[in-house]
Simulated scan of single mutants.
Amino acid sequence: MLRFDEITKSFGANTAVEAASFTVDEPMMIGIIGRSGAGKSTLLRMLNRLTDVTSGEITFEGQNITNLRGAAKRNWQSQCAMIFQQFNLVPRMDVVSNVLHGTLNRRSTLATMFNLYPDDDIHRAIDILERLGIAEHAPKRAEALSGGQQQRVAIARALMQDPKIILADEPIASLDPMNAQVVMQSLRDIHEQDGRMVIANLHTLDTARRYCDRVIGMRDGKIVFDGTPAQLTTGVARDIYGADASFSEATTSTEIETNAAAQKLLAYAAAQ
């Protein structure tokens, strides 16, 4: 389905991604890990075509997407939705309108200017919010929601595009452990229930192991690991992060102690 063939991205004398190659044969949930500056975000931005490729080729379902321009590029971006760490919502706009922004690529300029949406789109937006457990917040301003709720609104906006691929760039980096698990489970459910490919940049190893089918490790712009969560040992993680024996996974953990109180807190976070 998806193929990266010797993809390189340079910014002047600096190389952010160097000769990255991998193939995804079927929809799966993929985690990309590595320290800050490893090239993870640049990799996703090239796939979404927010950043141009310096050399190499990216193909999806046989189509070369690296050279798309104009309407063809916009069409690709509608099929490859992006979720950002900082949500990128319109704070003073209500939640359902933020979700409906996922349809902007197929609406006329006039309809966009006057914020006009078909009833079918409004109903679909509310259905998606219901699926993510936040439909009751539809009329509220986005800025009134918690970080975890806002990230679920961003996920709902991505789903409004009906994409084939969802890219998530550090989707839980600014969230507490409870909301992080709610957001990651939402992405996992979307993959399993819809059959969509999900690719997420992650900092936490336990999150990659728990939610992903495949993990890609990057260091200094290069792919240095590509395997299953079970193959992501502490030793492998040290190599990816360039760490010594003092490296501790606990410092990156989003785990919540499994007990009755913690499960109640997790359920509460999901409802908020």
Results as ranks from 00 to 15, higher is better:
residue 81 A to S: 13
residue 67 N to K: 15
residue 71 A to M: 14
residue 65 I to F: 01
residue 4 F to E: 12
residue 34 G to E: 01
residue 59 T to G: 09
residue 39 G to D: 11
residue 88 N to V: 10
residue 4 F to I: 10
residue 21 S to K: 04
residue 19 A to W: 00
residue 64 N to Q: 10
residue 20 A to H: 04
residue 22 F to Y: 06
residue 78 S to D: 05
residue 10 S to L: 00
residue 16 A to E: 06
residue 70 G to K: 02
residue 59 T to L: 13
residue 51 T to E: 14
residue 30 I to S: 07
residue 18 E to D: 12
residue 24 V to Y: 07
residue 65 I to S: 00
residue 35 R to H: 05
residue 44 L to C: 09
residue 56 G to R: 00
residue 75 N to M: 09
residue 25 D to Y: 14
residue 46 M to C: 03
residue 88 N to K: 15
residue 37 G to N: 06
residue 57 E to K: 11
residue 32 I to H: 02
residue 31 G to M: 03
residue 51 T to G: 04
residue 35 R to V: 02
residue 17 V to H: 08
residue 8 T to K: 05
residue 50 L to C: 13
residue 16 A to P: 14
residue 70 G to T: 06
residue 72 A to Y: 11
residue 56 G to W: 02
residue 60 F to Y: 14
residue 55 S to M: 07
residue 19 A to K: 13
residue 58 I to W: 08
residue 50 L to F: 11
residue 38 A to P: 05
residue 80 C to T: 11
residue 88 N to C: 09
residue 9 K to M: 07
residue 8 T to I: 05
residue 19 A to Y: 05
residue 71 A to R: 14
residue 49 R to I: 01
residue 73 K to A: 14
residue 40 K to I: 03
residue 84 F to R: 00
residue 13 A to T: 13
residue 28 M to T: 06
residue 15 T to D: 12
residue 26 E to M: 14
residue 50 L to V: 08
residue 24 V to L: 13
